[in-house]
Design a protein around this nucleic acid. Structure first.
Lengths: 230, 230, 230, 230
DNA sequence: AATGAATGAGCTTTCATTCAT
DNA sequence: TATGAATGAAAGCTCATTCAT
């Protein structure tokens, strides 16, 4: 029998987390003070402690939200036995998200979270889950591809999965440093790599997602569209 | 204890930086206190401030040392026009360094430095230099490979350079979380990728750097040795 | 304790300044620590910093209050063209204030402020204002007296103004060293000087403000009363 | 049986005191660090502690030297029964010293010493001696003048002595704030005051020490010369 | 439920002084 | 004698958190 609606409570919580993200992106977890968050929120110090038990709780909540958003990317994966297609899809979706300018703030927070995880078990377990699950799914994908004969036998599936994770993580880091970074060029290079690794036998591979649209010409391959970031 | 040698002074400075690295790896830049460093050093608080003007100075010195060590990797690069060879060499050397268990402490500090750079101009400029220089060298390498016809034309050189950087950065991050990570498997996967991207025309050369030594066998390919991490 | 009145806030500020004055009078600006002030106040360290940004701010606030109190003395000056009367009035009021035992604590702080001003621009500007304004007013007064023929022509108005300031400043210093100093005797001497400099033409008026009340006695001269300190 | 001559020792001591005066004038007693003095001296920290047991000792030595220099002024007083002459002499000599630009550094230190005395018994006793002795001499001078009928009876000798001290102290303070202050104008005003208080019966009083030398004319009165500062 | 003044442990840094060389 | 690296207590200040209102 709350005095206020759950919706009210949720929106206050949201408000605090948004303010915290702004502050953490601006100054980092440790340099951003609760007072900063209080000021950004427009609430009072006491109010914030009604919604979060501690500053660390806010950090953990942000890290968890972060992880949930990324887990959703994998959940969207359609499955199927086309390894190259799956990789292209995952690359397009996961890297594509990083192109959204509205999410730039997150880049900086993510890098903070990485550092925080090393000294904060709660955050670590959240981060680990966000890394280990994709690694397993990717490794399984590579194993499947090898069974299907579409990928070189000597490719270590676990190593390859980690390389994929790196390709995602590295872009996060590089974007934190350079918000205007050309994500499409990055994604194009990744697609070329995927094509090289698992060549599509059929008609000549495309440069479809290249930033320079072919001058004359047929409409771009709809499949390529999927990985386009712009 | 006056009139001491420059070597004495240098070793004190080293001692402080080592202690600081230990403390920062353990607790992070912000949670590690000067008292922690004092205790780890065995010196007094005042002594530390003879060698560094502030805690931030220690962080900057560590970041700079870090950068110098990584710049040295690129400096060792032999050059030449064999793109695939160059990539394999760089991968072997730069990722190989990360396999050294003695350097594990660094992984954790590096991740801290990434976060610190976002809010500390001095550290940022050090980090940026450590990223931008390799990016330019790699992009030039890719352009060269395209001119030579050894790499697909549609590969964006800048994007590809960033992907390479990511492959390095991601491993650093993943190692920070999992010190026992199989660097060799990771490196093997990278080599497979390189080979796929820039196939060596000659007789099939394979699986040489695989961890599972071929059961019956001729000695491993000496070229593969170069990229072996163990 | 939120949502407190402005009066509450003001009284806290007052409380801190009073405690600081006590501590500064006791030990000087530099030897008095924030902990001393904290203890004297009965508040916590953090509380003090809600009202003042730094120790130096407290010093500046005290110096400013000090200056304001002294400026008020000049503001009370009735004006008029009776030079000798004006000087007597100013001497009586400004030196009279120094006789108040309740203000003894201030003497010691004032001397500290003088020293502090030399190395602290903020305090210096406050002190300078408190000196320069009176100097100008006094110099103008002397010029007026010379125009009126009531003061010797060869008197340098600026020099004389500074001598007047000295007569005030010296008493402050001497009182800091000797709280029980006989202010009335000092004031009497000053009045004699004024009378000598600008003799009142009329019937001899004398000894009125002398401490030794005339034994048999008509009520004291009301004019003299004005300069009496007891 | 010292290894080095006494002269060497003395000159080191002098060197340290000079450096300390420079540092104290620059930053004040508390803000000037021993390291500042070490740097200014060109000696080492250890060396300074061979000559002074503590920083406070240096302060005390400086205050004592200061006092000695001022005591010398009184010692030069020729005596005699000409009250006005004596006052003029003392004013000329003591204020005249303050006009020496080479001594400007002292002004700032003196003001520091005043503040220090309040919280440092050693310095206080030095300062008190430097104040009480002149006060007694001056009071006696005034009493003498009253006995001789040259001074108004109603002048309180002790009060008047303190006013004289103030005239000196105030100039020190004002000079600390304004090194370029016109000491001659100040001295002129003081002479006018003395003349008003103890008029020289004889030939018409002069404006001899006025800064504007009479255009045409006889050489200035040698007696006036005595109080001239330029 | 909200406020925001208050708390106080703990932070980084300084600096007078010492003493091994 | 002289050096200057080392000491370590103590300084000013911060900030996550609490709780009376």
């Amino acid at each position: 029998m709350p005095r206020v609606s759950q919706g009210y409570l949720d929106s206050r919580r949201r408000q605090i987390m948004d303010a915290a993200i702004t502050c953490f992106a601006r100054h980092g977890f440790h340099r951003a003070t609760m007072q900063d968050i209080v000021a950004e929120t427009g609430l009072s110090a006491g109010a914030i402690y009604r919604y979060f038990r501690s500053k660390e709780d806010i950090v953990a909540a942000i890290a968890a939200e972060h992880h949930a958003a990324e887990a959703a990317v994998l959940a969207e994966w359609p499955g199927g036995d086309d390894v190259a297609g799956a990789l292209r899809h995952l690359a397009g979706v996961s890297l594509g998200r990083l192109a959204d300018p509205a999410e730039q703030r997150w880049r900086r927070v993510t890098v903070q979270v990485w550092g925080e995880a090393l000294h904060n078990d709660r955050v670590m377990s959240i981060v680990r889950r966000g890394l280990d699950e994709p690694l397993q799914i990717l490794a399984e994908l590579f194993r499947q591809g090898q069974r299907d004969g579409r990928l070189p036998e000597q490719l270590d599936p676990d190593g390859a999965a980690r390389v994929c994770a790196s390709i995602f993580q590295g872009l996060v880091l590089q974007q934190a440093y350079e918000p205007g970074l050309d994500v499409q060029a990055y994604l194009d290079a990744v697609i070329v790599l995927i094509d090289a690794l698992a060549p599509t036998p059929a008609p000549s591979r495309r440069s479809r997602s290249s930033r320079q649209q072919q001058p004359g010409g047929s409409p771009p391959d709809p499949a390529g569209q999927e990985f386009s970031v712009r």
